[in-house]
Simulated assay, not measured.
Amino acid sequence: MTFREHMAQMTARALTEFREESADGIYAVTFRIDSVDQDPRFPYLAIGYNTDAEVARLLAAPNPPDAWEARWNYAYFPPSGLEGIRIAGHHREHDPAGAELHRREAMAQGLWYEDGPELPDAERDARDECLATEFHDLCVDLARQLHTGGRIAARLGRPVPVILYDMFEPDEMFALTRAANPAELVAEFLTQDPEGQVPW
């Protein structure tokens, strides 16, 4: 099995673990892209969701956030959306199989390295950038597959957007989410894109 195949299985599995009582109110699947100790060699994906009930709770509170912020800004997401309900990728505690597959493939690509002074900083930085870009691209593809394979609609009874965000690269949120979803599902989300609505 490849790392990509493993990740596809894990994202599909995560959908089946969404709480039944929340399914009717889920308006977004969430993909939090992260890495262990902020090290690009160990990327992982926290897969979760957010609900209309959670947004209503935020907006009913004293000094509520802006409506868009409450719905789409990960800073306001509950644990189900921020921490997710399943972690997949190079995370030895939560996904040892994924960690081994990712390390093996990174080595085969010549991107893996061990800690130590042997690798020049410029080469280390270049490998880190490649690893991070590859993982971002994979996460976009995984979200697309959830749409094209009909998995989200089958689980929730309707299509909903997949919101992708990397808290260490917040400016990437809009580009990643735009690339991962049909345009009609992310129109509201993209209204706050500082780069504007880029044509498809």
Rank of each mutant, 00 (worst) to 15 (best):
Met1Pro: 09
Phe3Ala: 00
Glu5Ala: 14
Glu5Gly: 06
Glu5Trp: 03
His6Asn: 02
Gln9Gly: 14
Thr11Tyr: 00
Ala14Gln: 02
Arg19Asn: 14
Arg19Cys: 09
Glu21Leu: 09
Gly25Ser: 09
Ala28Glu: 09
Thr30Met: 09
Thr30Gln: 08
Phe31Glu: 06
Asp34Asn: 13
Asp34Val: 01
Asp39Val: 10
Asp39Pro: 04
Ile47Ala: 03
Glu54Val: 04
Arg57Pro: 00
Asn63Glu: 13
Asn63Ile: 03
Asp66Gly: 07
Ala67Ile: 11
Ala67Met: 05
Trp68Lys: 03
Ala75Lys: 13
Ala75Trp: 12
Ala75Arg: 13
Ala75Asp: 12
Tyr76Val: 04
Phe77Met: 08
Glu83Trp: 02
Ile85His: 06
Arg86Ser: 11
Arg86Gln: 14
Ile87Thr: 15
Arg92Ser: 07
Arg92Asn: 02
Glu93Ala: 15
Asp95Thr: 02
Pro96Lys: 09
Ala97Ser: 06
Glu100Pro: 01
Ala108Thr: 07
Leu111Gln: 12
Tyr113Arg: 07
Asp115His: 08
Asp115Ala: 14
Glu118Ile: 12
Glu118Val: 12
Leu119Trp: 10
Arg124Tyr: 06
Glu129His: 12
Cys130His: 13
Ala132Pro: 00
Phe135Arg: 01
Asp137Pro: 03
Leu138Asp: 06
Cys139Tyr: 04
Val140Tyr: 01
Asp141Leu: 04
Ala143Ser: 10
Ala143Lys: 01
Leu146Thr: 07
Gly149Cys: 04
Ala153Ser: 13
Arg158Glu: 05
Ile163Trp: 06
Leu164Ile: 11
Leu164Met: 13
Glu169Asp: 14
Pro170Phe: 14
Asp171Ile: 11
Met173His: 11
Phe174Glu: 01
Leu176Phe: 11
Ala179Gln: 14
Ala180Arg: 01
Ala180Gly: 06
Asn181Arg: 05
Glu184Ser: 10
Val186Glu: 00
Val186Ser: 03
Ala187Cys: 00
Gln192Met: 11
Pro194Cys: 02
Gly196Glu: 01
Gln197Cys: 03
Gln197Glu: 15
Trp200Val: 11
Trp200Leu: 12
